[in-house]
């Protein structure tokens, strides 16, 4: 990857930060999203200098400014790795729902750890601990939500980092995008959906395909979760169904008190 000529935006020189990608416990699907857009990949690479990216290159450097860390922390050795990344990186990005909230991985926290080990690994146990998001261990500077992340949003955030403009997220819930897309409300169709309390930015990806939202992007600002739980019950969904949704990605974990029995 050679250096491209220096760029400027409105006269302000564009930095080309050194970027590294790391993965803790995850499927690496978020990193694959970046490779998933050949049309803009070269432009992406002209904005940042990727020095470590297991999904796209071999080898790698340990000199970087921005670390994109995918996955959640499930083993003790990952704690050490994450702390080392934190020491090196100026900006640590929690990349995807696992890194932000624990993601699907944290579902195991619902169960007794010994039982989990036995169920998954049988007679070949491996070391595993309670699943934690990155910010339980280190300070996180930036979060990119989603399971997986949305490549358009990643590109937008990276563009903003490069030109040095503010990075903003929608503070409103998925319903805004869902209505703009002209979808029939999933509650009208008898489907549960966390759209009213989940942060938008996915362009209502799941509801567009007639699948209710599972809340992978975590809570929107000032969401009214108690009211939504009430609504879901009135629509005839069981407490188990409701909790299964709300606990799926871990984004709502701080808001479930009083809902669990």
């Amino acid at each position: 990857m050679s250096d491209s000529p220096a760029k400027a935006y409105l006269g302000v020189p564009v930095r080309r930060p050194r970027v590294a990608f790391f993965e803790l416990s995850s499927c690496e699907g978020c990193q694959l999203q970046i490779l998933n857009n050949e049309a803009s990949l070269l432009d992406f690479l002209s904005l940042v200098e990727v020095v470590r990216f297991r999904e796209g290159m071999s080898g790698g450097s340990d000199e970087y400014e921005i670390a994109f860390v995918e996955g959640s922390v499930t083993r003790d050795d990952e704690v050490g790795r994450l702390q080392k990344i934190r020491e090196t990186a100026k900006v640590l990005v929690a990349f995807g729902s696992c890194a932000c909230f624990g993601g699907v991985n944290q579902l195991k926290n619902r169960f007794c750890l010994d039982w989990v080990k036995k169920e998954v690994y049988g007679d070949h146990p491996v070391e595993t601990a309670e699943v934690r998001p990155l910010d339980a261990i280190v300070q996180v500077d930036l979060r990119i939500y989603g399971c997986p992340v949305k490549k358009e949003e990643v590109e937008k955030i990276v563009t903003h980092i490069a030109i040095g403009s503010d990075i903003t997220y929608p503070r409103y819930p998925v319903c805004m995008e869902c209505k703009a897309n002209g979808n029939v409300c999933l509650y009208d169709l008898g489907e549960p959906c966390l759209g009213p309390v989940t942060r938008a930015g996915c362009d209502s990806w799941c509801p567009n395909n007639r699948a209710g939202c599972w809340g992978c992007r975590g809570p929107s600002d000032d969401m009214n979760i108690l009211q939504l739980v009430d609504i879901m019950k009135r629509h005839g969904f069981s407490e188990e169904t409701i909790l299964d949704r709300l606990e799926c990605f871990g984004g709502f974990s701080g808001h479930l008190e009083g809902l669990k029995k």
Binding site: L10, G11, V12, I163, G164, S165, D166, T168
Partner: peptide, 16 residues
């Protein structure tokens, strides 16, 4: 104070 004004604080004379 915000995104626009922070960016503005970095532009140079001669910018349109």
């Amino acid at each position: 104070v915000g995104g626009l004004t922070s960016f503005l604080s970095r532009v140079e004379r001669g910018t349109h």
